[in-house]
Nucleic acid binder design. Sequence first.
DNA 1: TCGGTTTTGTTCTCGCGTTCACAAGCGCCT
DNA 2: AGGCGCTTGTGAACGCGAGAACAAAACCGA
Lengths: 227, 227
Amino acid sequence: MEKTRAVTARPSPEAARDIPEATVARLPVYLRALTTLSEQGTSTCSSEELAGAAGVNSAKLRKDLSYLGSYGTRGVGYDVEYLRYQIAREIGVTQDWPVVIVGIGNLGQALANYSGFRSRGFRVVALLDADEARHDEVVAGLEVRPFSDLEQIVSDHAVAIGVIATPAVAAQDVADRMVACGITSILNFAPSVLSVPEQVDVRKVDLSIELQILAYHEQRKTQGAAS
Amino acid sequence: MEKTRAVTARPSPEAARDIPEATVARLPVYLRALTTLSEQGTSTCSSEELAGAAGVNSAKLRKDLSYLGSYGTRGVGYDVEYLRYQIAREIGVTQDWPVVIVGIGNLGQALANYSGFRSRGFRVVALLDADEARHDEVVAGLEVRPFSDLEQIVSDHAVAIGVIATPAVAAQDVADRMVACGITSILNFAPSVLSVPEQVDVRKVDLSIELQILAYHEQRKTQGAAS
DNA sequence: TCGGTTTTGTTCTCGCGTTCACAAGCGCCT
DNA sequence: AGGCGCTTGTGAACGCGAGAACAAAACCGA
């Protein structure tokens, strides 16, 4: 991951700072918190306030932000709008990201209708499903199209991000086809482990895993109380 | 390990091994992989095979399993059924977990219909929504009920786990009410930071955050290629 | 019965992420 | 103009998790 190159000596003011993965995962949270603050009319905030709104330690917040640059003012805090823009730019949500969703079951439909995507720079350009019975059905203002249209759509809209919301058995096939079409980032909701080439990023969201983790801790609580 | 509390001296053979959080998060993945292997008719597997199916390093897998006990046989591997049961028991999915879902929008409906819950020991006992227009509507075989029924339902079914699928503004209120009713584990799909008492576990799933993380990496890829 | 082979369970080391603590910097008040 | 208080940015210590490497154990075959 790039870390080898001698970035240290370079005088270039921006580019090529590599931000730790853990920090990247928190930036969207900060972004959301800043948006909320902004909507409340707050124009300036301290790291303490922002950390509170984001649910993290203030030292961690400051360190995270320091990877982006020095966007705060000592003794004062951060300008909400300015910082919000800087984070948005760093994440890349100032630009528009076309997205395809494959698998229009219950979850796929929910995703297609989810307003949180559009408001953050993601635009669902197509809904695909292998089931012929579903074709031409309209979901969230988009016609459901056959899976075989994938390649056409990806090249027409320059899609880089694909969402998989199919049953587990279909997921690997869908991923393979996506990769073949040139998609390089996949968000996988299917409960299966995908194998993809090195350069393709996959993130997995598994609803039942989250519940199982809760169940584990829940079990320990009640167990402890009982004994 | 074992840092503070003086567990070390205790002779008790089981209980109170504390399993690292990172391991807990992977156990459900192993469980799923084992179920798949079992369905394929495999009765025994090596750590290498299972690790492959789960998408992790085999050393990590073995270390994770070692926290549960010694359930493998050296020179042979693991008995699929036996290990599956042990993990299920450890996580707590051998018992039945009643769950309430609050907020029956698109996502809430998708969750209510998700078969992956029931098959893993989670039983949705009620669907609640604050919107009166939705009441009595039937989703996934369950009648949507007013949010004010929460307390009654929680005590009737001994519910310990709640799922929040409401808009962000309602989430904190819902969480407060859940906590007041005695719910001690919350799975939050609303894009907001919840504040709850110490002893309550909250896990957050944020669909748009995952996409934003992908967007960040995607931006870096294309950026790097362009320059 | 005994060596050889295989695979687990565990020890050790390394790197990342978190947190503390403080110096550097900025604005304000006198 | 100068000191004071406040907040950021960062250096350093610490703890956890990942992975490599090895020792311990079980089975197999002669």
